[in-house]
Design a binder for these strands. Sequence first.
DNA 1: GTGGTCTAGACCACC
DNA 2: GTGGTCTAGACCACG
Lengths: 123, 123, 123, 123
Amino acid sequence: MIQLDLASTVPIYDQIKAGLRGLVAKGLLKPGDDAPSIRALASRLKVNPNTVARAYRELTMEGIFEARRGEGNVISPAAVKAARGGLEDLRQGVAEAARMARRGGVPWPDILSSLDKVRKEEP
Amino acid sequence: MIQLDLASTVPIYDQIKAGLRGLVAKGLLKPGDDAPSIRALASRLKVNPNTVARAYRELTMEGIFEARRGEGNVISPAAVKAARGGLEDLRQGVAEAARMARRGGVPWPDILSSLDKVRKEEP
Amino acid sequence: MIQLDLASTVPIYDQIKAGLRGLVAKGLLKPGDDAPSIRALASRLKVNPNTVARAYRELTMEGIFEARRGEGNVISPAAVKAARGGLEDLRQGVAEAARMARRGGVPWPDILSSLDKVRKEEP
Amino acid sequence: MIQLDLASTVPIYDQIKAGLRGLVAKGLLKPGDDAPSIRALASRLKVNPNTVARAYRELTMEGIFEARRGEGNVISPAAVKAARGGLEDLRQGVAEAARMARRGGVPWPDILSSLDKVRKEEP
DNA sequence: GTGGTCTAGACCACC
DNA sequence: GTGGTCTAGACCACG
């Protein structure tokens, strides 16, 4: 359900955070739902549990998860709203990459066409 | 002439490489021209000479510069063509950031509007 | 396992690269194996970690190593093939030295005898 | 008469020294002959006169040239014998390159075949 | 003056 | 623990 790109320079825990925020934003995870357990998710993604734990910890600090004793992590009631904040980071990531590309001499139309290719990738 | 963003997570030497590639791509540096000396550029950018040296070394390996002993760096005849490769990397950087953002649940129109803000930043 | 000649004019990081490529070429390091950590190798060779890091970075760019964040360097699946390219450079180094010597008036048999002395150096 | 390889990593002044020593060793320059003037040789080789001057200075120190006031440089009577010393450096250059190549995993027969290709290059 | 190498040591991010 | 980046400063070789 979450797609990782291990070869990418984007930190794995960031990709996990983004993936989970995305599931919330898209309504596939609703407030009150159980989040997958750290160990389960780690083994499914073939990733170090510490890495998943870090993503969960930060999502908890953002108010998207709630840690309930003995029950694991639950999607917080305020998650949908809280997820918005994370989206801003992602938008800025795109903006920074675009800025770098333009400074590096990529013509603006080429940037747009790259983007368009991404848009069509998987519907 | 080259703009650095020291707060960015993008390594300084990468920003320098992108800037120089951009100058070549835009025709402000033509094959045969002297590149600024490492020390001169370093002091202009207020950066350690080693950092500039690393950027130059990698540009040399990419075939954009030619280092001549004791004479400094010269833009290689093949620079314009070689610079194209670098542009592709930058485009892919934008594409990857966009992919991450979409996975994270950022609505596509928001991505486009972020981009548009960048477009208007500096004429 | 890697022999350095600190008095040589050949840069240390180049000697390290050659040594590691040699270990791959001889099969002592196989794809999937862990490369020694930068710090460990640096202290074993009594050399600055930065110097080893540079060698590793370049080997990564050549496709011989794969650097995984926080996990160290791993011999790439394509390492054996990629190592071939490096061997070619070394052969050309010998060829160039021989060319220089002949131009300088060294009789060809003397070149061969020098070489033969090297062959017998260490079994 | 002297062949330079400007792209080589071998210092130009070294190539010039080797070339002149070679001319002496081959008998094309005999004791008592005038050496070409620094400026003439520099312009013929399209090289900085300082570079040629350095080569001449070192050849003088080796006893191959004699600087005579107002007459320029003359091949010394002891030149033929003195040239031998320089040959030793060149032989060691080949030896060192071969050593590096072997450490880097080049099979010995490949080293020999590279050398053989050089031998056939220009008769 | 130029570029190249190396050291020392700091700080960061990641797992 | 790992690798990556950056700074500071020294020294060398070249033209």
